[in-house]
């Protein structure tokens, strides 16, 4: 199937600002799904609220556009009800890790087979540029006019600590790598987290004098390096990208199925 067959063309051009990185996440995700040869009917996309969450309106899969921070809770219900489906859960950084932080760590801990994509633009885009738990110390936001004093989470470290079975980081500059990683994350059985560094030129860019979308993507190229590279040894401040964890551990729906079998054996 061609990439265009996976979208709802009637809703295009989409609502995202010029140069918004969320569109590149959509683009790479469609290519990952196309390369996996998946049918639209075997995928469910569940999203919450935010500019990022609007992605579920544009894909022609089964889609649920739910409430802020709770996409993983809805997705957990869908997966337990229909474990044979592939569930993709794109979230903004606020959606995933401020209001949704608790759902996030517990979904990872349970190891339920979902693909969580954290579309990390380091700000609340939809509501006008408030800082998020991923903005980081020293950044500017409408709610931090004298600069942010909150430290940020490291999505990769947090996901690993919470027990996720698959953990990766990439950027919208590295769109081909993103598509490769998303393919692997989708087929991995267990809770998969892909952090995608993306740009909100409208709020993060303006507030932080980070330039336009092109400048912000150039910056992603400069501040990241493949996992284990020589460059990282020389410059420890570089952020690594690639797959950090890919492990087989008992998956929640399969374990739950066993519990049902045990309970049924008990009553019969």
């Amino acid at each position: 199937m061609a990439v265009k067959d996976y979208i709802r063309e009637r809703f295009f051009p989409h609502m995202w600002c010029p140069g918004c990185g969320h569109g590149i996440v959509l683009n790479s995700l469609l290519r990952a799904v196309e390369r996996l040869g998946m049918s639209k009917n075997e995928i469910v996309m569940v999203s919450g609220i935010g500019c990022s969450s609007r992605i579920s309106g544009y894909v022609d899969f089964h889609t649920l556009h739910t409430i802020h921070g709770r996409a993983l809770a809805f997705a957990t219900g869908v997966k337990l009800g229909q474990p044979e489906l592939n569930i993709i859960v794109p979230m903004g950084d606020g959606d995933a890790l401020s209001i949704g932080g608790n759902h996030f760590i517990h979904a990872a801990r349970r190891n339920i087979d979902l693909t969580a994509i954290v579309m990390n633009n380091r700000i609340y885009g939809m509501t006008g540029g408030q800082y998020s738990p991923l903005s980081g110390y020293g950044t500017m936001a409408t709610t931090a006019p004298y600069s942010n004093i909150d430290q940020d989470f490291d999505v990769v470290d947090l996901s690993i600590a919470a027990g996720a079975a698959f953990v990766a980081r990439t950027t919208v500059y590295h769109a081909k790598q993103m598509a490769d990683i998303l393919m692997k994350a989708i087929i991995h059985e267990g809770f998969s987290v892909v952090e995608v560094m993306t740009q909100c030129p409208t709020y993060f860019g303006r507030k932080n004098r980070a330039g336009d979308a092109v400048d912000m993507m150039e910056h992603m190229k400069e501040i990241t390096t493949p996992i284990g590279s020589k460059a990282k040894e020389k410059n420890p401040d570089l952020l690594e990208r690639g797959i950090f964890v890919q492990k087989e551990i008992p998956e929640y729906c399969q374990e739950y199925e066993r519990i049902i079998e045990r309970a049924q054996a008990d009553v019969s």
């Binding site: 590149i24 959509l26 683009n27 290519r31």
Partner: peptide, 11 residues
């Protein structure tokens, strides 16, 4: 095809 895969608007 880098232009194609990086276009945020699928344009």
């Amino acid at each position: 095809k880098l232009c194609e895969i990086r276009c945020p608007d699928l344009a």
